[in-house]
Design a protein around this nucleic acid. Structure first.
Lengths: 353, 353
DNA sequence: ATGAAAGCGCTAACAG
DNA sequence: CTGTTAGCGCTTTCAT
């Protein structure tokens, strides 16, 4: 692989001059600059960033760690963060903390070894796993920002959605519609004061006589079981709040297979406002948390700390307000009639034939 | 940031000894090794990979460039490739060739500057854009493999699905069911002998009297227009072959909004076998191309060339066979009855109420 | 405007 | 088993 010395030699100048020419330094004669640049181009020269990075002690690279990429929530987030980062002149190094061989701590370690300039860490449902690794990283001067709430005053800036308010909005939507028996479907992490459940319950409390049942579920299987359980109840819920759109999608599929029509028999709302929700039948009512805001806040905050470590003082918390998108999967309950519990015959694929 | 010299000093040994101890070299006394490792751990030392990479002239990193991450096709591919690469001891550097500021050529250039050991380039619908950049890269000794067919005998290994066979399978499925008027929906790149359209047409030809109409579409808007056009036809098609599951999802949403029921009035099949297809109502019939195979083939081929540049001789082509997954979105046409063209009243969200 | 020289942090001969 | 030395490719003072 061709290097700077080769170019310098060909041009009959020193390495320093060649370097300056390629960096468009003003302290060089225009004629030589052009000559050197032409030679470099023709020779197919490209800087060796690893040498350059070593020399300038910076990689112009941001680390991004997310739990997984197959969860439809993350791709758009990655895209947006990539846009912001690249727009600001930074490369992005993506790590999947859920990949078989890696974990959150490993990702952080790898990123530190690579000497990335900063890190955006998107927390998983399990909260912050690698608290120790994170603290150490910031202690060594690598700025980081957390995307997602974690407990215990982490030593870095944190941007997260106000899930509690999101839950509250859903609860009010349900009670306003007249629902009195509601279910929560999803993994139930405790996100402290910003937990969806906290807000949801607060919302329910404002209407007397509402009962609530929590069904933990993360996988397809668990959703299937959970839905079956709910439908088998003496008095099944008339509305389900799924903690994520992806869970809601699974739930809708299950309900359909059990010939329960949405929203007539059961209302469903999700969380995240993914495109997926608009493909469902009926289109999904959901809570939106402006990923654009999340992404740009995270990147801006990180870049701020990058140039000024003391930027805006001690660890900040930036909370993004949610918004309810009412679509087709919610309606008033059919109070007069209980839902049918026996599977329908024949074409099993659509409850609405 | 703490460096090797610091550790060496603290341990009272030379840098080389410290380096060897941390590399678990056998040529060192066990006691010193332990001592040094302990000191390094306590000090929170981590190797500086950028220095190390410069020295050993290798980054143990593979570049992966994909057109976009928001297209639901790619996340799983990325996940699988990441798994394979990491399993083989390589890091992955992801680049999005569709991101605002980057293009395929820029990605390749960036990857070359970073001195990645090899590159997997997933082609977009437009085919290989940065042919020049790719050639130059391999000329400089960076092995690459293309994921997706491109024309003109590219200078690198290529793994791709046999889309033609996929198209053929769909055509036969349609004609077997009795469809005689079929539509193709999607961007229409010409993928040479492996084009979906080629195989699809071949399949149609085997049954006399089948008419076909092609409707180009990539975006939501275009799908909407395309579907409207088809429905407005004197004799609308009874089956639609969407070039991707994501397009099929949009099409289904449009059809539903127009109160056309699937598959009774129109059959729909997709391509890619994404999870998305199972969330649709009805669940989508589609063509599968084993992404696992794609991913592992690509990585293995690349790793092969990495250790033996002459691995298996001149540029190889590895073609992955497709498989038809018949689900709920296809059936015999209702030949007796033409589809209703007027929108239904009332609840507009579901054609099947 | 240009060159000489130093050094970023690390590993790998080579020598002892 | 351990230390000395050189050098990966680049940028950047510091001289000239």
């Amino acid at each position: 692989m061709i290097k700077l010395a080769d170019i310098a030699e060909q041009a009959g100048v020193s390495e320093s001059t060649a370097s300056r020419a390629l960096a468009n330094s003003p302290r060089i004669s225009a004629v030589k600059r052009e000559l050197i640049q032409r030679i470099a181009l023709e020779a197919g020269y490209t800087v060796n960033q690893v040498a350059r990075n070593l020399r300038v002690q910076s990689t112009k690279t941001l680390g991004l760690v997310i739990p997984e990429i197959t969860n439809p929530f993350f791709p758009r987030l990655v895209q947006l963060i990539a846009d912001s980062a690249i727009g600001a002149g930074y490369r992005l190094q993506l790590h999947l903390s859920g990949v078989s061989q890696e974990s959150e701590g490993d990702c952080l370690a790898a990123l530190r070894e690579q000497r990335v300039d900063g890190v955006i860490l998107v927390t998983s449902e399990n909260g912050l796993v690698a608290r120790e690794a994170l603290s150490q990283m910031v202690a060594f001067g690598v700025p980081a920002v957390l995307l997602g709430w974690v407990s215990g005053e982490p030593p870095v800036d944190m941007v997260f959605g106000n899930d509690a308010t999101g839950g509250y909005l859903v609860a009010k939507h349900f009670t306003d519609l007249g629902h009195r028996r509601v279910a929560i479907l999803g993994a139930v992490p405790h996100r402290g004061p910003f937990d969806r459940l906290v807000g949801f319950r607060k919302g329910l409390m404002e209407t007397p006589g509402v009962t609530e049942i929590v069904v933990p579920a993360r996988t397809n299987e668990e959703v299937r079981l959970g839905i079956d359980h709910l439908l088998g109840l003496d008095k099944p819920p008339t509305a389900i709040f799924a903690y994520q759109d992806s869970l809601a999608a699974m739930a809708c599929r299950c309900l359909r297979q059990s010939c329960v029509s949405i929203p007539e028999e059961i209302s469903v709302v999700g969380f995240d406002n993914l495109e997926l929700g608009t493909y469902l039948c009926p289109q999904l009512t959901t809570v939106d948390l402006s990923m654009e805001q999340m992404a740009s806040c995270a990147v801006e905050t990180l870049l701020g700390r990058l140039k000024t470590p003391s930027f805006r003082g001690g660890p900040n918390q930036i909370v993004i307000p949610p918004q309810l998108f009412v679509r087709e999967s919610t309606s008033r309950p059919r109070s007069t009639q209980s839902i049918k519990k026996t599977p329908c015959e024949g074409a099993s694929h659509c409850a609405c034939d």
